[in-house]
Deep mutational scan, measured.
Amino acid sequence: MTYKLILNGKTLKGETTTEAVDAATAEKVFKQYANDNGSDGEWTYDDATKTFTVTE
C-alpha cells in the first residue's frame, strides 16, 4: 500500500510517499525520514487516507 507523509515543519515542509506492508512499517520509514531532515513534532495518522502528518 502507498502511505503519504505531510510535513508541516518550521523549516521543512512538503509531502512524500512510501510503499509499505502496513501503517506501522510506513511510520518507521517516515519517522526516520523526518529525523534525518531535522523535523520533530506532533504526529497524527488518518487511516482512511493512509496519511501521516507531522506538525512542528
Rank of each mutant, 00 (worst) to 15 (best):
N37Q: 13
G38M: 12
T2L: 13
A24Q: 10
I6R: 04
T51F: 01
D46H: 05
K4Q: 05
E19T: 14
T25Q: 13
V54K: 02
S39P: 06
E56D: 11
A24M: 11
E27W: 14
E56P: 11
D46C: 10
A23N: 05
Y45R: 00
T2Q: 09
A20H: 02
D47N: 08
F52Q: 00
Q32P: 01
L12E: 09
T11D: 11
V21N: 09
K28N: 06
V54I: 12
D46M: 04
D47H: 10
K10Y: 09
T49Y: 04
G41E: 03
K10S: 11
E19H: 12
T53V: 08
T18M: 09
F52P: 01
A26F: 01
G9T: 15
G41Y: 13
A20S: 06
D22P: 01
K31H: 07
E27K: 10
T11A: 09
Y45Q: 00
A48V: 10
F52G: 00
V21R: 10
Q32C: 05
T16W: 15
D46E: 06
A20K: 01
Q32V: 08
W43Y: 02
K4T: 14
N35F: 14
E56C: 08
A26P: 00
V21D: 09
G9S: 08
D36F: 11
K4H: 13
K13D: 05
A34Y: 08
D22F: 02
L5H: 02
V54T: 02
L5C: 09
T16Y: 15
N35G: 09
K4S: 05
K50W: 05
N8S: 08
D36C: 11
K10L: 14
V54E: 02
D22R: 01
Y33N: 01
E56Q: 12
A48H: 09
N37G: 05
T53A: 04
V54Q: 03
A48C: 09
E42M: 11
V29M: 09
T55P: 01
E15D: 05
T49P: 00
L5Q: 01
T17C: 11
D46T: 03
Q32A: 11
G14M: 14
E42L: 12
T51E: 03
Q32F: 05
A34M: 13
V21F: 11
D36T: 09
M1T: 14
L12C: 15
K28E: 08
K31Q: 07
K10A: 11
A20L: 01
K10H: 11
V21C: 12
G14P: 05
F30S: 00
E15W: 14
D36H: 08
T18N: 02
W43C: 00
A24L: 10
Y33A: 03
V29G: 02
T51V: 04
T25C: 07
A23H: 08
A24G: 07
E56W: 13
E42Q: 10
T11V: 11
Y3F: 13
T25I: 06
K50R: 14
T51Q: 03
D46F: 03
T2A: 05
K28W: 07
G14K: 14
Y45N: 00
A34N: 03
A24F: 08
N8I: 15
V21W: 12
T44A: 10
D46V: 04
V54N: 01
E27D: 03
G9I: 09
D40A: 12
Y3P: 04
T53F: 10
Q32S: 07
T2K: 11
A20Y: 02
K10I: 14
T49H: 04
D22N: 08
V54A: 02
T55K: 06
Y45A: 00
K13M: 09
K31D: 01
A23E: 06
G38D: 07
A34P: 02
W43Q: 00
A26N: 00
D40L: 12
D22C: 04
A26E: 00
Q32L: 08
G14F: 15
D36Y: 09
T49F: 04
K31N: 03
T49A: 05
L7A: 04
A24D: 08
G41A: 05
E27R: 08
Y3S: 03
D47E: 13
F30W: 00
A26V: 02
G38A: 08
S39V: 15
K50F: 08
W43P: 00
G41Q: 05
K28C: 07
D36R: 08
N8E: 08
F52A: 01
V54F: 12
D40W: 15
N8C: 15
E56H: 08
Y3T: 03
A23K: 13
D47K: 07
T17E: 07
W43N: 00
A26L: 00
V54P: 00
K28F: 08
V54G: 01
E27C: 15
T16I: 15
F30M: 02
A26G: 00
K13R: 11
A24T: 09
K4P: 04
N35D: 10
E27T: 03
T44I: 08
